[in-house]
Design a protein around this nucleic acid. Structure first.
Lengths: 129, 129
DNA sequence: ACAAAAAACCGACTGTCAATCGGTTTTACA
DNA sequence: TGTAAAACCGATTGACAGTCGGTTTTTTGT
């Protein structure tokens, strides 16, 4: 999934704002970067066709919103880039963790372990199944 | 850093083979996907200009090799994609871990914790500093 | 030193895709 | 049902990867 600059900005916008129509998105971006309503509309349409936004017509305009939560989406992206470079039987997600670990300091490792604990808890409680 | 299909294949090749010249790379890929030596050469050159390959002239041809170890490179890529979608003060690397954790099962969490232990050890031994 | 061979380099063309926006058609609502 | 708003269509531009022919430069063997 290869995204352009504007597409990325728009996605980020929807993770903050949740729901908006083209007009509102345009209003939000015209100060910071310009561009016509049409440009926003076609970008929304492109993101919709890529499955990254959902939309429903409510009243006279499409109401757009993110198709996935932000973190799930980032997780997907990461899986994608790592899969491209993962060899043979290696687990790409795990490899990604290893690849990243060297960038973490001790406090961050603490947080990471806490995160693992939380995740284990959610598994054993049956929340994820 | 946006890479094309052939560029990705070539990078992967160099993480397995370590050093090769254009001719050898071409030899390796011509069965599986065709393409002329020139195509390989310009791809190597593009990767060199992007800083992903290093090269030295030894004898009559450039000898190319990966500029970074594979995992470091994957780590960089992950940082890149997460930075694009990370909000405000959030630590993008940590966010990436969180984003990925839901895709791990218990054995993988075990491995991950082992990995953290190893990394902590390498920090306290002063190996990383 | 020089000719032949090999490799590097240059430039052109193609295809894809995001961004951009004007113009037309469709839709909703008063 | 007419009008305003929105959606849709299509054209253009700009990057950039892939592709490869042809030219220049470099290396090497005699």
């Amino acid at each position: 999934m290869n995204l352009g600059e504007l597409e990325k900005l728009v996605l980020k916008f929807f993770w903050q704002v949740k729901v908006a129509d083209a007009k509102q998105v345009h209003l939000h971006f015209e100060k910071s970067r310009g561009g016509t309503l049409n440009t926003i509309q076609s970008t929304l349409d492109r993101l919709f066709k890529k499955g990254l936004l959902k939309r429903d017509k409510e009243g006279h305009a499409f109401q757009y919103r993110a198709a996935k939560p932000r973190k799930a989406f980032i997780g997907k992206l990461i899986k994608e880039v790592t899969d491209d470079f993962t060899l043979g039987n290696e687990n790409s997600i795990l490899a990604a963790f290893v690849s990243l670990s060297s960038e973490l300091n001790e406090q961050q490792l603490d947080k990471l372990e806490k995160m693992i604990q939380d995740h284990r808890a959610s598994i054993s409680s049956g929340y994820n199944s």
